Simulated assay, not measured.
Amino acid sequence: MANRFTTAWTDVDKEILLFGREVEGRSSTFWNSQQSFSDEDISYVKTKGEFVLWQQGKRPFSAEEVLTNKWVKTNPGGHTTQLFFYPDGTLQDVSLFDGVTLSGHWQLNHGKIAVTIEGQFHHYTFDIVASEDDHIHSAVEFEDGSLSTYLKVFCIR
């Protein structure tokens, strides 16, 4: 699914993409957008009651939470990895089934975990948004700058 749509996505765009996928599903016009959102689109979405309720179900991560838990990342295609976050801002992304390990970096950015991962042939970025209700969090992943997939990320203790 890589290289589906290529554009310069802002933090607000990413939030709207995630909202669209989580609230309206795969057929969401927001999720299926091929370009960043206009000011008019952003204003419309941010005043929707569903968007406001969705936002109320989110919360910021703390550095302690990130560093003291074990993390699993999966996507709708079933690719599942374990994420290891280190205090120096580095991380490892290890496939659960074949042990392939990718390296990257992370940082907290306005309560979201901003992740970059360098593969041998591809570059991945995503911002993990914390759920207020449970320990199953979510993100929109970009591969080589293109909208790629929806992720669920959860901690195991």
Rank of each mutant, 00 (worst) to 15 (best):
F51K: 00
Q56C: 07
V66N: 04
S62C: 05
K48G: 05
D11R: 15
S38F: 04
S146C: 11
W71C: 00
T7E: 11
L151G: 03
F97Y: 05
L18N: 01
F51T: 05
R157K: 14
R4G: 09
Q34T: 14
Y124L: 11
F121M: 06
Q55T: 11
T47G: 08
F154V: 03
E40H: 10
F19G: 01
E143M: 12
F19W: 02
L18G: 02
E143Q: 10
E141T: 03
Y124F: 13
N69S: 15
S28Q: 05
L91D: 02
H110P: 02
D133N: 14
W54C: 09
G89D: 01
T74H: 04
H137P: 04
V72M: 10
F61C: 04
L151R: 04
S38R: 05
A114K: 15
F121T: 06
A130S: 04
H79N: 07
K58P: 03
I128P: 00
V140M: 06
V100I: 11
R4Q: 12
N32P: 11
L108W: 04
T10F: 11
D13R: 08
G89Y: 09
H79C: 00
K73H: 05
V45W: 03
K58S: 04
E22I: 11
L147N: 02
G25Y: 07
S33C: 05
H105Y: 14
I128T: 06
L147M: 12
A63R: 14
G99A: 07
E64P: 02
L53P: 01
K46G: 01
Q107M: 06
L53M: 10
P87R: 04
P60I: 12
V66I: 13
D41T: 14
G78A: 06
E40G: 00
T47R: 14
G145M: 09
E65S: 04
Q35I: 11
G20V: 02
R26Q: 12
T6N: 07
T125P: 00
G99T: 04
N32G: 15
G20R: 00
K73P: 04
Y44G: 06
F61D: 08
S146Y: 06
N69A: 10
V72T: 12
G111N: 09
F5E: 08
S27L: 14
L147F: 07
W9P: 00
S146A: 14
A114V: 06
G49W: 06
H105C: 05
S138A: 12
E65A: 10
S27D: 09
